[in-house]
């Protein structure tokens, strides 16, 4: 069975475009019958993923581009974000300790924590010099 419907958008790597990215995701998730709460989760997870790409993979170089692909099927939405920037070292990631970070006036690390909490699956791999982040949200 192959009833998946997909949409793709390439957009400049600038935080200025985050609201447009959120709109893109929200519109299609709505169209495909996701609930208000589910959409809020998806929207935030995608925003966090895109923010990390812009800030860390591309170091805020807005001449770069990131690509977002949405694939809807009967069971879930799969979101894939692709960039050609600096890869993220998954092994170095530690869950954020907010109390400690406040004491050290440090920020960061929160985006991944949120993505893992808000989505049903999150995976990251480097393939053909591209970083591919894939997240899915089940309908039920």
């Amino acid at each position: 069975m192959d009833k998946a419907v997909s949409y793709q958008k390439s957009i400049g790597a600038s935080t200025e475009n985050l609201s447009e990215i959120r709109k893109f995701v929200t519109n299609y998730a709505q169209k495909h019958g996701f609930s208000k709460n589910q959409i809020a989760d998806i929207r935030l997870a995608v925003d966090e993923a895109a923010t990390n790409i812009i800030k860390h993979a591309y170091k805020s170089d807005d001449s770069q581009t990131l690509t977002i692909k949405l694939e809807f099927d009967d069971e879930k939405l799969c979101v894939t974000l692709t960039d050609q920037g600096i890869s993220f070292d998954v092994k170095k990631y530690k869950s954020p300790d907010i109390k400690q970070q406040i004491a050290k006036k440090k920020r960061g690390g929160m985006g991944i924590h949120l993505m893992k909490n808000l989505m049903d699956e999150v995976s990251y791999k480097v393939k053909n010099q591209e970083n591919v982040l894939r997240m899915s949200k089940n309908r039920n």
Binding site: L44, T51, I98, Q101, K105, K106, R107, G108
Partner: peptide, 12 residues
């Protein structure tokens, strides 16, 4: 709406 960058400001 708030994303973690917003929370980061309060942390800092």
């Amino acid at each position: 709406y708030i994303a973690s960058a917003g929370l980061g400001v309060f942390m800092a």
